[in-house]
Design a protein around this nucleic acid. Structure first.
Lengths: 230, 230
DNA sequence: GGTCATAAAATGATTAGATCACTTTATGAC
DNA sequence: GTCATAAAGTGATCTAATCATTTTATGACC
């Protein structure tokens, strides 16, 4: 299926590619500013609207970011290889379960890898997000769900593999708002924390099999909650 | 990390969102045509260049597709949740190995799921791509590498989980050209085929553990080839 | 000398209309 | 019925102007 044979080269797509190369060659990273649209248009010898269209295309991917009155900046997805579609339509119950079953398959082996590799930055991030969760539970902070997502991403980061981390980032971000709503209504914050802590301990102490089991158990638990809701 | 707190609503982003909703509401799928830019601009009551920028943003994501002189069509990524960044820069040796190690972790459990679920469409796709590979090997067709990628996607589809299939689609497409080059120079087409056939047999006959082992072995083999190249 | 309101400059956002290029469809000759 | 041609539709690009937002420079005031 799908022959990627047709390379429809257009000015807009070539421009976008050139801008990305320019960003990489200049060593720019997320948050850094590009030249103004006018300057870019002049440099690439095209009219301003044409330049803007090429830049908008990159904005769609999250590779660039427009700030009215300020400038155009490198976005969070620059250099990233796997992305979550920010425009995927609102999921129904079945799609949510499908998503959780996908996580159930992917996250355990990633947790096992984390326990093997124990990347230092990832470990620190993991502990930090756990501590933050403790505090937010105590303060009944509504932002807890974000911290919990962060924990899963931190575990993936501890595996030391950028592609896997990006994959996990993506699937965790899919329908994040829908997942939040469910867990806010039906989840148990303390139980969640305990499961995370168990997983963290297995990773910290270097027990891949335990980490894998902990991740699997945790996700099955979450899936049960989602399945059970009316 | 990363508070997604700033919702910078802009006309362009609202327009893009509205277009996506329109596509979904009208039940349009990949390949279907949208109204012309002029008509869309009139409908949303904005000027043509503004409309074009919003559409370009969606083109960046692969949700839309522009065809000069013909029209604007729904793209292959519409409705998809996980995407491969089509603009990720060319990888170095280390990044290729990282990618293969990611696949080594993700694909085996997916293969196991495929052997459990045995989705009919996926199975047919799998057999079809195997048959095509046989023919292309006999004819020394250069497009064989595409068929091989297709086989991996077919296995994921056989698992019946859309999210997992999209994840696999994405990571298989990352740096696909770079992978092709390596395998063309250092790979053994017949050996590749045999490993695929073994995996297919395990899936077909419903042996998850065998499928998992076959997938793992195959990817380790590929990784060895990539590591070995000078 | 430091602080803060104001003015000026830079930058992106949007609009308008015109012309060019490509694709598809309708027309008509053969 | 087939095929070349013309016409219409559509996207691509350009020019030029005006509006809105942000940032920086200015200078009065304390």
């Amino acid at each position: 299926m799908t022959s990627s044979a047709d390379f429809r080269r257009t000015l807009s797509s070539d421009l976008a590619r050139a801008v990305v190369r320019m960003v990489n060659d200049n060593g720019l990273g997320p948050g850094d500013a590009l030249d103004s649209v006018k300057v870019l248009a002049a440099r690439f010898d095209v009219a301003v609207p044409t330049m803007r269209e090429a830049l908008r295309r990159l904005e769609g991917l999250g590779v660039l970011e427009f700030r009215h009155g300020s400038g155009i900046y490198v976005g969070a997805n620059a250099g990233r290889r796997v992305l979550a579609n920010p425009l995927s339509p609102r999921p129904n119950q079945g799609q949510l379960i499908e998503l959780l079953e996908a996580r159930r398959r992917i996250e355990p082996p990633i947790a096992a890898l984390a326990a093997q590799v124990q990347d230092a930055v990832g470990l620190a991030w993991m502990e930090e997000s756990l501590a933050r969760a403790r505090q937010q539970i105590a303060e009944r902070d509504d932002a807890l769900w974000l911290t919990n997502l962060d924990f899963h991403r931190a575990v993936a980061a501890t595996g030391g593999n950028g592609v896997l981390a990006e994959v996990l980032d993506s699937i965790v971000l899919i329908h994040a708002d829908a997942q939040r709503e469910i867990l806010r209504l039906h989840g148990d914050a303390v139980e969640d924390y305990d499961e995370h802590a168990r997983l963290a301990a297995a990773v910290r102490e270097g027990h891949p099999a335990d980490a894998e089991r902990a991740a699997a158990g945790h996700l099955e638990h979450v899936a049960t909650i989602v399945r059970a809701r009316s």
